[in-house]
Design a protein around this nucleic acid. Structure first.
Length: 262
DNA sequence: GGTAATGTTAGACT
DNA sequence: TAGTCTAACATTAC
């Protein structure tokens, strides 16, 4: 479930559980998910060290490691998560990289489908997407956002929101939610929006992301007035009761309400 | 068994 | 050039 709000909560979880604990061992249980470094070197560099701090950038989690120039970077793909447990806990088949701590606990990086990636790099620019990454939506002023829209006004709104190189961290689910809350049809192009609608898009983007972080996915429950629980064919709009429509837009399955979103 | 799934990217097309 | 679309990656659930 990892878009910006989920990764923000993974960050909190990581900070809560895994900082300042000496790493006694590292295991990799799938090939090819650790990038830019061999697993042997990865393990050698991290063994005996401890995680100092973590921050989020878009859908990435970036970790400082005490005594290492390299940063440890997680991308969760479509289906990633963390799990911090005692080392003798039940195995989890989806735990692809495991950091064992001296205190008897371990942090598992879970990846259900193997679309996630783990990096250990000196320079964040070594990760292509991080290098190209657009600004953080929650740090963006209204003026900056409007400028960004103006620069890409020929784009479809949903595609704009999901483009990591234009604005960081929003994916399929939250782009749908933002457009639902802003009452905008996901087919719309940016240059069809009035000034007022552009501001509304900005406001709803912030509101949805902030609220989602607060709710605390993947555990937290979303309000019933949100579209997110009704992203299924045949479901009804939580606001007006008409049937939710599903269509492929900007390469992804968009769910929306024809009546509420014009 | 077919299809779709929270992400990203390369390459083809308009 | 810019934007869109498709397929590919890997694996599971319906």
């Amino acid at each position: 479930m990892p878009e910006l709000p989920e990764v923000e909560n993974f960050k909190s979880y990581f900070r809560r559980t895994s900082l300042k604990k000496q790493i006694s061992d590292v295991e990799s249980r799938a090939k090819g998910l650790i990038k830019k470094i061999t697993f042997d070197d990865f393990k050698k560099k991290l063994k005996g060290k401890s995680f100092r701090d973590a921050r989020r950038r878009g859908k990435f989690l970036i970790v400082n490691v005490g005594g290492l120039k390299e940063k440890l970077i997680f991308h969760f793909g479509m289906t990633g998560n963390f799990e911090y447990l005692k080392q003798d806990s039940e195995e989890n088949d989806f735990a692809k990289v495991v950091f064992k701590f001296k205190n008897g606990y371990e942090l598992r990086w879970l990846n259900f489908r193997k679309l996630g990636k783990v990096y250990l790099v000196k320079d964040l620019d070594e990760v292509d997407l991080l290098k190209k990454m657009g600004p953080e939506p929650l740090l963006l002023s209204k003026e900056e956002f409007l400028d960004l829209l103006e620069k890409h006004k020929r784009k479809n709104i949903k595609s704009f929101l999901m483009s990591q190189n234009l604005i960081a961290g929003i994916g399929n689910i939250y782009s749908d939610e933002i457009m639902f809350k802003a009452n905008m049809n996901p087919h719309n192009k940016i240059d069809k929006l009035t000034d007022k609608e552009k501001e509304e898009l900005y406001n709803q983007m912030k509101k949805v992301l902030k609220k989602a972080i607060e709710i605390g996915p993947p555990q937290g429950k979303f309000p019933s007035s949100w579209l997110i629980s009704y992203r299924k064919e045949g479901e009804r709009c939580p606001i007006c009761g008409s049937k939710i429509k599903k269509e492929k837009i900007a390469g992804r399955s968009a769910y929306f309400c024809l009546k509420c979103q014009k």
